[in-house]
Design a protein around this nucleic acid. Structure first.
Lengths: 309, 309
DNA sequence: ATTTACCATCGATTTCATCGATGATTTGAG
DNA sequence: CTCAAATCATCGATGAAATCGATGGTAAAT
């Protein structure tokens, strides 16, 4: 059996004429006759009762025709679905982002994206780096916005921007009168961290030359579950912390008794990138997304040339 | 697109493995890979996202797969329908019969047929010869039981039996004391006829050497709509009539004050035959039907050798 | 480093749909 | 009654396309 054959019998059923049906299918009449005969032999039934003067469909043929029409309908549905998805931008794009980035980047992104590519549809999720990488491998999301290099041969990375860390401290802290704060100024401070698994915790420790084991003992009970909580702890005088630049735009920035300013030394930033499976077929959609991101960054971060992958 | 290709993508979707899927489809792995790639190119979408370590279906692929499964389901339905109809005896057989035959032949036939070919299913209709021939040409019925030769190049005839005419007259009629009644005895009698269109009316006139026009004037208002009515008229003394042999078995035969006996001369019978389209594909079913008819006739009629078509 | 697993690619082969020409049969016109 | 038109079936040649076995490339496992 064959979609072509089904097309043929539908044409014959509609025209009741082998010649017309053949013409309608853009084949010669012998071809159509032969294929229908072959199909009838394969099925072991007579679909059309033909004489020199008339072509009539048998009761079995009528039943077969019914199913054939449904098949053609479904086949056309496949064509439709495909056509709708031929634009690589179309169709939901499942994007995951880390919690220290997502709430601050996405608001910048969504409106311009809607304006630029109205057919794009993002499905957002917010999880920590490890989980995002798992879900990427399991094809549960299509790409992840991460601040750590992803090293897997399956995954490709599109660098987006360099996001500096800012130091956040209470208004009554000695830092408040300093013009510049450098990396070494932090060594003697009590650094508050996010809970285990957040890449920002690791990044902050790295900036402050802390070892994981060191911090675990001292500050385990002071780890915060979110950036917002972390700020509250800083405001309450438990210590200082590092905040990625985009998060400075959060609503807490004013009136919480917490002040922040950029770190004045080098290497105190993290690289945000879009990570996706090497085999992902809609990379054009990711390129478009990345372009919109780069076009709408505040000047507190530094766009990266995509060529330095 | 192609049913084969759809089978392939379903297999890949189920196994998530090109090799296994190919094995499952009884083709080589390159063949399956190639066909899927071709289908993807044709549709312009990626159905499977493949890497060396994993095969995953894309969202588009998922949609396509859904339709593909429905298509395969319908295709299997076609196979099923065909298999059910491969027995040419199976499936409804639409038989029409003339009103002067149907009520008397069918009761003889149905029980033995059910015993002999339980899978056969008759759809009966009862109409006059002309209507039956029309419906035969329009494929509305598959065969007709007629008592007149059907002369059309499209139609074939299977002779069944020779059915003599009996003379029916009231008990007080002079015929009641006769041992033999011949054709010529009828000439002076008032012959009652069925209404226009019934072949029995023409046959009775032919036996009695009457012209159509002759009878029309005299007896137009005495024509009966059914054999049963005709008998009532005979019983009421309006005249005599001719009754085909099988109809003698009707329930009216006893106690209606009407007597009947065979006509004692030659050529006073009609030939009952099964008429069907030359192109009808299930002639085996008709042969089976004819055989059952011939095996269950009463000895008042003479079976005909099917070879004298 | 070697083996294993797996999908992609390539060239040769075979299968099969297609075409044009022709045949057979019936219908309708002259 | 003969001839032309209509219509489906059959036949042989052609070409496109599916298939296969062999092979390549890559990543994971040992």
């Amino acid at each position: 059996m064959n979609l072509r054959d089904l097309k043929y019998i539908i044409a014959v059923a509609e025209t009741r004429h082998f010649g017309k049906a053949a013409e309608h299918c853009f084949v010669s009449q012998p071809t159509l006759s032969g294929q229908i005969r072959k199909l009838e032999e394969e099925l072991g039934v007579t679909i059309f009762e033909r004489s020199n003067r008339s072509v009539a469909i048998t009761p079995v043929g009528q039943e077969i025709l019914h199913h054939a029409r449904q098949i053609m309908e479904q086949a056309e549905a496949i064509q439709q679905v495909s056509k709708r998805h031929q634009d690589p931008l179309a169709g939901p794009l499942r994007i995951g982002a880390i919690p220290t980035l997502s709430p601050y980047l996405m608001p910048l992104l969504l409106t311009p994206l809607k304006k630029r590519h109205p057919q794009m549809q993002l499905v957002l999720s917010e999880e920590m780096t490890g989980t995002l990488l798992q879900r990427l491998q399991r094809h549960e999301i299509d790409a992840a916005l991460l601040a750590t290099p992803a090293d897997s041969p399956d995954l490709d990375t599109l660098p987006l921007f360099d996001e500096p860390f800012w130091v956040a401290y209470p208004r009554n802290h000695p830092f408040y009168t300093r013009e510049k704060i450098t990396q070494s100024d932090l060594d003697s401070e009590n650094l508050l961290l996010l809970s285990e698994g957040h890449c920002l915790a690791d990044q902050a420790m790295a900036v402050c030359h802390l070892q994981r084991r060191q911090s675990e003992g001292e500050m385990a009970d002071l780890r915060a579950a979110s950036l917002e909580t972390l700020i509250q702890l800083v405001g309450a005088g438990y210590g200082i912390t590092l905040i990625p630049a985009l998060a400075m735009r959060g609503s807490w920035a004013s009136g919480s008794g917490v002040v922040a300013q950029p770190l004045a030394s080098a290497d105190t930033s993290r690289q945000v990138a879009l990570v996706y499976r090497h085999s992902f077929p809609r990379q054009a959609a990711l390129q478009a997304l990345a372009a919109v991101i780069l076009d709408n960054l505040p000047n507190t971060v530094t766009p990266l040339d995509p060529s330095q992958a």
